[in-house]
Design a protein around this nucleic acid. Structure first.
Lengths: 106, 106
DNA sequence: ATCATATGTAAGTATTTTATTACATATGTA
DNA sequence: TACATATGTAATAAAATACTTACATATGAT
């Protein structure tokens, strides 16, 4: 069960989830870990684009990655879903809203 | 308890939630219904901007609105939070991912 | 050596989202 | 009438996000 320590952290997770590709990635990874190139083929998107989405998921702590050597001897970067489950309701949004920063991104 | 009938609907809600202003709006409305101009002053943002955010929340069915006549005789548009609570986990994302459209927005 | 596999990223473009400015209309009060 | 309140929206600008193209490196197999 994810625990949000601040509104900013909640927002980071919500932003990571609000994209169809990233929801698909989560769906695929829920069936098991997978490496980047394979994932890209399965999702039908380019690897650079997949990287971008995986980064956002990783920054939000929804997935994590490990390098591993395939049977062929080549290096592969495996991604897996971190245990991920949470509940949202008016109360916890209210409680977290005070620790919500309205700062610009860049 | 919100029930998502499709991945697209889930995404709509997640997109509506992934903005600090909109989370603040939800937090304020969780304390009671309020009309637009008052809300804008409370949040410290312009009314046109607030409109934009309220529209997104309304499209996602998170809030709803009613016109009402103030004691002064003027019309006011009141917004209230719809009962709002849901749980997210790998399983329901997996289940909903098949009904996720990857279409462009406009 | 060439081909297929893998990771990694920089640079540029396109699209979407967010925000501002400037209006319009209407009601009530001084 | 002039001022304060309210809603509503169009047009534009700015910022953030998403996506593509083009590379680089490395491993193993043919």
């Amino acid at each position: 069960m994810i625990r949000f320590d601040s509104g900013d952290e909640l927002l980071l997770v919500l932003e990571a989830l609000s994209n169809p590709h990233r929801l698909k990635i989560i769906a695929v990874l829920s069936e098991g870990r997978q490496y980047v190139s394979h994932l890209a083929r399965e999702l039908g998107i380019s690897r650079p684009l997949l990287y971008l989405h995986l980064q956002k998921l990783e920054e939000a702590n929804i997935v994590s990655s490990d390098m591993e050597i395939l049977e062929t001897g080549q290096a592969a970067k495996y991604y897996q879903l971190n245990d991920f489950q949470f509940e949202l309701n008016e109360k916890n949004i209210h409680d977290l809203s005070s620790s919500l920063t309205m700062k610009k991104k860049k």
